[in-house]
Amino acid sequence: MKSTQSAESNAVNTVLGPVSADELGVISVHEALLSVMPGAEHAFDITINRAEIFETLAAKLTGFRENGGQTIVDSSGMFGGRDVKLYEALSRTTGVHIVASTGMGPEEMLGGYFLTPQTNPPTPWPAEKFADLFTKEVTEGMVVPRVERRGAAGLVVTAANHAGMTATEESLFRGAARTALATGVAVSIRYGADAVADLGVVLDENVPADRVVVGGLDRKDAVAAGAPLQIARRGAYVALDHVGADDDVHLTDPERAALVIELVEAGFGDRILLSSNAIGVAKGQPEYDLPFSYILSTFAPLLAAQGLSDKDAQRILVGNPRDLLSAR
């Protein structure tokens, strides 16, 4: 099996091929370019016009670049609307590096093929089957259905249900971890009900903690449980990845900024990642029209006003995500 992964230890897979991590600049590590609810592409009342989608996303990526952003990670995984050929054209047009991801989850978003394999009684897919599926998307290229494989995935992502990890989701997490071990890419998890326990499932597969990012840690329940500090102490990356969200589930931006300062003062500035979970174009689900540039234009000044140094800001926006994405 010939790998599309560059031999360079600090290379990152983008949709246009491997790029030196030192060229990535300011990185947003958890966004969605095109997010399509599975099945929505077949709905009679939903229009998917690729030309219109391209124009919308090109404008948003250009705005991201004009505010200093250079790389964006589409962390939607395999079946959330990922369109590799579209992303290639967007990257060429806008000059923004795009890192696409493999992986899937939570269970409620999976198709029946992954839930009811041909066993009697049906059992969840084993971790090794998920690992094989994800690994090939890194080593052979991401699947364009019924056509071909194209650029290699640069990250493996998965998520658990907020009510708690299911048996299928444990297989997903373990499969993602095994892909990280086999390929050198990092693994990004969205925790379910217990961030520390869900991280433990991945670490149980012997993945080094500094190759794992735990997302959703700006949820109020995570902060109330002390999860951000616990995750950082274990050596994994702490993703505050709903910057700009205004809801009952997540911290406000001032609270989120205070948490960043707290983590830095505790000595964990090298464990922090920021993103907005923004959606460029949504189909079959509510729009979330937050600019990809929001962190740079709005949140970074708030951090500076709360006392974050330029050095720490550079580390959080450039150094940490660069280190995470560098294949090892």
Score class of each variant (00 low, 15 high):
Thr183Ala: 03
Arg146Trp: 04
Pro228Ile: 11
Gly192Tyr: 04
Gln306Pro: 03
Val73Lys: 05
Gly77Trp: 15
Ile279Thr: 11
Asn206Phe: 10
Leu172Glu: 07
Thr119His: 13
Ala59Leu: 12
Pro301Cys: 06
Lys283Cys: 13
Leu199Ile: 01
Val243Ile: 13
Lys220Gly: 04
Gly80Asn: 12
Glu265Ala: 10
Gly25Phe: 01
Leu290His: 07
Val84Ser: 13
Asp45Thr: 12
Met109His: 15
Leu155Gly: 05
Ser275His: 02
Ile189Met: 08
Gly154Lys: 00
Met37Thr: 14
Thr123Asp: 13
Leu274Tyr: 00
Gly63Asn: 13
Ala258Met: 09
Ala177Arg: 08
Met165Pro: 14
Pro117Met: 10
Phe54Ser: 06
Thr71Ile: 00
Asn10Lys: 01
Pro18Arg: 12
Phe268Ala: 00
Arg219Phe: 09
Lys60Ile: 07
Pro18Ile: 12
Gly216Pro: 08
Phe173Arg: 10
Ala232Gly: 00
Gln5Glu: 14
His250Ser: 10
Leu24Trp: 04
Thr94His: 09
Gly175Ala: 11
Thr252Ala: 06
Ala266Thr: 09
Ala100Met: 09
Thr102Ser: 02
Ile279Lys: 15
Glu108Cys: 13
Val185Trp: 02
Glu170Pro: 07
His162Val: 15
Phe54Met: 06
Leu274Pro: 08
Asp247Pro: 03
Pro38Thr: 07
Gly105Glu: 01
Gly215Asn: 12
Gly307Tyr: 05
Thr47Leu: 15
Ala51Asn: 12
Ile72Trp: 03
Gly63His: 11
Leu217Asn: 05
Leu303Val: 10
Asn277Phe: 07
Glu88Arg: 11
Leu33Lys: 12
Gly216Glu: 04
Phe268Tyr: 12
Gly81Asp: 03
Glu140Met: 11
Val96Pro: 11
Glu169Asn: 08
Asp45Phe: 13
Ser35Leu: 14
Leu217Val: 01
Asp270His: 12
His42Val: 14
Ser6Arg: 06
Gly319His: 06
Val138Glu: 02
Arg315Pro: 00
Tyr113Ala: 15
Gly244His: 04
Thr94Cys: 10
Pro38Met: 09
Ser76Ala: 08
Leu203Gly: 13
Asp204Phe: 00
Phe64Ala: 01
Ala163Asp: 14
Phe54Val: 04
Thr168Cys: 11
Asp247Gln: 04
Phe130Pro: 06
Ala40Lys: 02
Gly175Leu: 15
Leu90Met: 07
Glu52Phe: 12
Pro122Thr: 07
Asn161Gly: 11
His97Cys: 03
Glu170Gly: 06
Val12Gln: 00
Ser297Trp: 02
Pro208Tyr: 01
Gln306Phe: 09
His42Asp: 14
Gly269Pro: 05
Arg174Leu: 06
Ala32Lys: 15
Val260Trp: 00
Ile272Phe: 02
Asp312Ser: 05
Arg174Ser: 02
Leu203Ile: 10
Glu205Lys: 02
Met109Cys: 12
Leu61Trp: 04
Thr179Gln: 02
Arg150Gln: 08
Met37Ser: 14
Pro321Gln: 00
Ala89Arg: 15
Ala163Cys: 08
Asn277Ile: 00
Leu203Cys: 15
Val96Phe: 05
Ala7Met: 13
Leu317Gln: 00
Ile295Ser: 10
Phe79Tyr: 15
Glu107Gly: 09
Ala176Cys: 08
Ala167Pro: 09
Lys85Ile: 12
Val264Cys: 03
Arg178Val: 06
Ala300Glu: 13
Asn120Cys: 11
Thr252Lys: 03
Pro18Trp: 09
Arg328Ser: 12
Asn161Ser: 14
Ser276Thr: 14
Asp310Leu: 02
Leu251Lys: 03
Gly184Cys: 05
